[in-house]
Design a binder for these strands. Structure first.
Lengths: 328, 328
DNA sequence: GAGTCTGCATAGGCATAGCCTATGACAAGT
DNA sequence: ACTTGTCATAGGCTATGCCTATGCAGACTC
């Protein structure tokens, strides 16, 4: 480090001091306008000159006269200070009221649960946020994240955590879903059959599932393989409502989370049968791309998603373990 | 003063800290790159966020992710820091080597004494200063100053000191100048006649003077009025060389300072006769316009003018009182 | 799932930057 | 010569800014 390494760098404070000096033409007057003592300003200007290694003002007994360097500093410094002010203003605005577009991608089973309440809550509480909700399979959602088509995604499978930032949302259990008439058991007020079944009981039931493209189906197949059998898949439909309709018409059974059919369970159109020893569980993660800047509005939406999930789980007694709440 | 008036303003230091954070993606890495402790940087970033009232980065366990506000700050901040650096660079350059144009205006009697040595000295010692010397009457020099045609002027009469900044240069005495043959007295080695004359002795001598437009002539007339007579002006010429030539041809006398004719005095072509009781004195001032910024080169030239005057006065034993030297 | 690693936050201590009051020097105007 | 306005210097006090040490939480490993 050099011996004469006086001050580290130019300070905006001193710059504004100097602008005041340039405006008032005398150190005393400027100090007065700045509500500070004259010697302090005097010292600051001197320090500035030492730092820049230039004489900025010629001291006289009737005030000071700016040098060429001084006028340059005053002119350019004013621009700089203005652009700093503008920047600060812009930042405060960004931070103050959340606004602007936010796009979220849900897989179908979460979309059923969240989309409408989320849209409604955001619209009523943050009318300046323009929220767009899209529904797709986990894989597509990750693609959308990668291509910056959405800000926030929900997925079930964890992927590369060096590109994405994950936050666990909730862990769901997959139930055998059936039309109540189509099952030889009583259903409690929570819509769940009294007697759970075991994995092996699944193996001969006619099931309607999604295609292999869906993460849910992959999970289900993994489960079956681990248990040493394969499902009796009578139909493959990549549409949750259609699956639900088939189930409620007693045309087949399926494997779904409580959240995916919570309305039908609540209305008694569909019953849940717990699969025990082992159960099929999956965890939903909230995902965002690491490289993508996070808008304030987007943060609000994330928080709202958590809130909505808690509300829905509580209101409908949905079987799921919530992830620990992030405070904010 | 408000309660939550936390920090006074944004600091460039903190801005550069944040840029490093944006670049490195983690507080630890950035602190390392900045050669500072991690907690210090952590604290600084937090302070910045408090000051701006915006979250700039979302802390994770694997570094930080910038928010929208953070990226904005990083982008615009970089521009600002660059423009500050450019400004500092420009200022250092302005201060380092004096260069560029400087215009000086002298009245004839000082121009005779100073112009050539000044031009030569500046050219040899500061080759990057482009010095222009102009010669005119005091009144015109003040006009030139007012119109920014010259940076520095020399005048004899003081004028409005709220517009101009004055610095006394030297006080000269006006002598009766004559061809040595045309005067009944011995002249010493300094070119001055042994016997002084009194003011009243002037009154019948045929004089060649400048017109009333010149400050010198006004001074002379004031002197005569104060002494209760008027000059016998046989010719009016607004050209110092022509006056000198007439005097040296013994066609007339004149009233000039030693400096105006120092060469002719040194060569013995002209002699000086001191006017005593009272003497005629005038002070030359160095003048610059208060509102006009002073270039470094201009400061150098001012200093050089003082140096040259001292040199000339000493070398030629010119009769004049020097103003106190300004150190520099 | 326990242990380790990595990264951020908090706490307390020390040096110094920054501002103040008091005072001195100097030029300009009375 | 005296007063007034200006800038500079000196000494003291407070708050800032950085440091080390330590705590805490998520993420990777076996």
């Amino acid at each position: 480090m050099s011996i004469n390494d006086d001050g580290e760098s130019l300070k905006l404070k001193q710059l504004s001091y100097f602008l005041s000096l340039a405006e008032h033409g005398s150190i005393s007057a400027a100090a007065n306008a700045l509500n500070m003592a004259q010697p302090s300003l005097s010292e600051n200007i001197a320090k500035l000159e030492r730092k820049l290694d230039v004489q900025l003002a010629i001291r006289g007994s009737r005030g000071v006269q700016l040098t060429q360097a001084g006028t340059l500093l005053a002119d350019r410094g004013q621009e700089i200070l203005k652009s700093v002010d503008d920047l600060v203003e812009a930042l405060r605005l960004l931070g103050s009221d959340p606004r602007g577009p936010v796009s979220v991608g849900f897989p179908p089973s979460l979309s059923i649960l969240l989309s409408v309440p989320l849209l409604e809550s955001i619209h009523s509480e943050y009318s300046d946020i323009r929220l767009h909700v899209a529904e797709a399979m986990s894989g597509d959602i990750l693609d959308w994240l990668a291509n910056d088509r959405i800000d926030i995604g929900c997925v079930y499978e964890i992927s590369d955590s060096s590109v994405y930032i994950l936050e666990p949302l909730l862990t769901e259990e997959l139930f055998l879903v059936t039309a109540p008439d189509n099952w030889d058991d009583e259903f409690g007020p929570d819509g769940i059959a009294k007697k759970p079944i075991t994995a092996s009981d699944l193996q001969h039931l006619p099931l309607v599932l999604t295609s292999q493209a869906h993460g849910a189906r992959k999970l289900q197949e993994r489960f079956a393989r681990a248990e040493g059998f394969s499902f009796n898949v009578t139909a493959t439909i990549d549409s949750l409502p259609h699956i639900v309709e088939m189930v409620s018409r007693a045309s087949a059974y399926s494997l779904l989370s409580h959240g995916a059919v919570f309305k039908q369970v609540a209305s008694g159109d569909i019953g849940l049968v717990r699969i025990a020893e082992p159960s099929i569980r999956r965890t939903a993660y909230l995902v965002r791309k690491r490289a993508r800047p996070v808008s304030h509005a987007s943060t609000i939406v994330e928080g709202m998603i958590g809130t909505i999930i808690r509300e829905m789980v509580e209101r409908y007694n949905i079987e799921a373990q919530l992830a620990p709440r992030k405070d904010g």
